[in-house]
Amino acid sequence: MLEPQWLEALQRLWEEGERHDAVALERAHKNLFITPDTGRFLYQLVRSLRPARVLEVGTSAGYSTLWLALALRDRSASHLKSLDIDPARQAQASANLARFGLAGRVSLLGTDAGPWLAAAQTNSLDFIFLDADRSRYAGYWPHLQHLLVPGGLLVMDNALSHATECAEFVDAVIATKGYLAETYPIGKGQFVIVKD
């Protein structure tokens, strides 16, 4: 159960992130958190699906990581891996996870997602959250197909806010047989893909 104090703490963290981003001059220094309603959506999906193997591509400061880890916190067999190439972002995420008492629930991997996805084992993931460099998503798609188990779910953020940047990936997914995808107007737009 997601207790009120967790929701309040997540809201405060999001507000801190928004204040920070409002004055940060360079995109590289912004937190770029998902919206709280996107966090709730991810939490609902993960709680409902009860996946054992979860991957987040794009840790950033760990706000979405917190929502995913909270959804998995009472499932000892489940584990979340989160990839980000930026060591400063990984350190920030690590501090946020420790703040919420969730450090042991997540493996933060400071690595480039492309080679990691290419080397990962087939049918090794039940749930993927994609929120990173959108220009690389179409190149990730062949690997993501192999990694998801049948019935597995992939959620991509920014499907509406950055529709042009996501278009090549969306088109590739829609053109691939055996996948059902839909965009939901939650937060900045969630493109949800199920491997049928």
Rank of each mutant, 00 (worst) to 15 (best):
G151S: 07
D74K: 08
S94Q: 15
G152T: 08
Q11G: 09
R27Q: 12
V155H: 00
P115G: 02
A119D: 11
R27V: 13
A88H: 11
D37Q: 14
L108W: 03
H29Y: 09
K177T: 12
D133I: 02
D157A: 12
P142C: 06
E182M: 12
P36N: 07
L83F: 02
G151Y: 03
L148E: 03
L25G: 13
R134D: 01
K188W: 09
D112P: 02
K195T: 07
P51V: 07
H143T: 00
V106F: 10
P4N: 07
T122C: 06
G114S: 15
F100H: 08
L49N: 04
T35A: 13
D196I: 13
R47C: 11
T65R: 04
G101T: 02
F41C: 05
L153V: 15
L49H: 07
S94F: 08
D157R: 10
V194G: 05
P150Q: 03
G152K: 01
R73G: 00
G187S: 03
E16D: 15
A91F: 09
V23M: 06
G114C: 10
D133Q: 07
W116H: 12
M156N: 11
L117K: 07
S161F: 15
R12F: 07
V57Y: 04
Q92V: 08
Y63D: 04
L147D: 09
D21E: 08
H79S: 02
T176L: 05
P115L: 04
L72K: 03
Q90V: 15
Q5E: 14
D126Q: 10
H29C: 04
D112Y: 07
A52E: 15
H29V: 00
E165M: 12
L102D: 01
K188H: 12
A69E: 05
E3N: 06
G187C: 06
T176I: 06
L70I: 02
V149C: 10
G189W: 11
V46W: 03
Y184P: 00
L125K: 08
A132N: 01
D74C: 01
G178H: 07
D112S: 12
L2R: 11
L25I: 06
L68W: 08
R19G: 01
L83T: 01
L147G: 07
A69K: 07
C166V: 15
Q145W: 05
I186F: 05
A28E: 14
T35D: 09
D133N: 12
R89Y: 10
E16Y: 13
F127V: 10
R75T: 04
L160P: 02
T65A: 11
F169Y: 14
